[in-house]
Amino acid sequence: MSVPAKTKTGFLDSLEKSPATDIFLKGLWRKNPTFVQVIGMCPVLAVSNTAENALAMGLATAFVLLMSNTLVSILRFVIPKQVRISCYILIIATFVTMADYAIQAMSVELHKALGAFISLIVVNCLILGRAEAFASKNTVETSVLDALGMGAGFTFALFCLGAVRELLGNGSLFGIAVFPASFQEWVVMMLPAGGFFTLALWLFIFNAVKRAKQNKERGKALP
């Protein structure tokens, strides 16, 4: 009877009183956008074929998320409720375009590898979701922290996928060969199907860790 009520107040407490680190860690681990919330999966599956691509994509998304969260939070009293979604999209699209140019200016190769998926950050539901669910209702500082946490969580998840796929699919990490030259590449890992396999593997690991933790806590609570 008291269990659901307890968790509810606990959750609210953490939102209201918890220190800044808690908001950050929430995005990085407890509510990781990819492994726990399972949102914004398109780039996760599409451009995680090498560690470099995955990291670049994660950082670009994190940048857009940070900027849009900040701006949305600043403007949260200015934006009328009726047109908020179009305003958010406008803001997000601006920063996506900026990120697009920035990546092009950094490396043509990288821009080619990420392709259309940079522009598609606009429709990543993680960014719009954070703007709507968090930044529009919270102060600028907490919104920045939330964006940093979620961005870091997203980048971390993409990197996890990219590293495994590049290691098995190409025998290297960040383009540096890890295995001897006679390593047999698993071609499937570089193909879209490999993204699904790797994601399943990581989700399995995440859930197994979570369940083990829960069991431990339950074991402590019982005696």
């Binding site: 009726q82 047109v83 305003c87 140019y101």
Partner: peptide, 30 residues
Amino acid sequence: MLKAMVGIGIVCACLIALTFEYTLPRIENL
């Protein structure tokens, strides 16, 4: 609504234009 959207639109357009101007030479060079 009109004010908010136009305002945000102008700010965004400026941001994009600035980035474009700033990165264009480097992109062409690369």
